[in-house]
Design a protein around this nucleic acid. Structure first.
Length: 224
DNA sequence: TCATTAAATTGTT
DNA sequence: AACAATTTAATGA
């Protein structure tokens, strides 16, 4: 009984038994309270970060205090490989929007997997590719994106089945949290969600969002 | 198991 | 930002 039997993790399942054993031996799991900085921009990358439970936000803070939220990472998401691969400092802040269970795979183990496992490399390649298209899609329509668009965009990203395999239909996220990710007030998030609900794309639940039509949500990403 | 209460979240102005 | 309504979770009989 390991943490990966509780939290489905595709890349782990693909590893050979001996590599799985090494990962389980080296990995660290931390219980982190809400609104806590896990990693700070400029820190040396010391491990690969996995979100087992909770929700984290990846953002960049500028000197004048403005915060640009890059993306949200729901359970099942892993991040930080970019900085690990380049062996450089993190270029963004990572912090929890609510109490979260965070796994950390040490840099040395990460490097060992890179050397030993082809399937691990394939997973990373896939993930990086998915991230690239995510950001391309975002810059495509960034200039004409209003609050509705940003909310829809964030939702579509959170339900990306390749990056976050654990999210099937319903994601536990409050409108406040979604507002933080989309940089929209809670009230505005609320009306944006109601419009999406009207279009039968999502269903608003207490403390959660249920996606009824993921394809329509993806379409919205490109139509705003 | 059910009723009461507090806390969290949502809906509206 | 404030307030009302709704849902959930906790408590105790």
């Amino acid at each position: 009984m390991s943490i990966f039997t509780q939290y489905q993790t595709p890349w782990f399942n693909e590893l050979s038994p001996d590599l799985q054993e090494k990962v389980l031996h080296d990995i660290i799991v931390l219980d982190i309270p809400a609104n806590t900085m896990i990693e700070k921009k400029g820190d040396k990358a010391n491990g690969w970060i996995g979100v087992l439970e909770g929700l984290v936000k990846v953002s960049v803070g500028t000197p004048d205090g403005k915060i640009t939220s890059l993306t949200g990472i729901p359970p099942g998401g892993w991040l930080g490989e970019g900085s690990l691969l380049k062996k450089e400092a993190l270029r963004y802040d990572v912090f929890t929007l609510r109490r979260s269970l965070i796994a950390k795979l040490p840099m040395s183990t990460f490097g060992y997997l890179l050397d030993q496992s082809i399937s691990f490399n394939r997973f990373l390649l896939n993930q990086l590719n998915e991230r690239v298209s995510q950001f391309i899609g975002r810059t495509e329509n960034n200039h004409l994106q209003d609050a509705d668009g940003r909310v829809a965009c964030c939702l579509a990203e959170l339900f990306n089945p390749l990056l976050y395999p654990n999210n099937h239909d319903v994601l536990p996220i409050t409108q406040i949290e979604l507002g933080y990710l989309a940089r929209v007030s809670r009230q505005r998030t609320n009306v944006a969600l109601k419009r999406l609900e009207q279009k039968q794309i999502i269903k608003i639940e207490y403390g959660a969002i249920r996606v009824l039509n993921l394809n329509a949500l993806k379409e919205l990403q490109h139509s705003y």
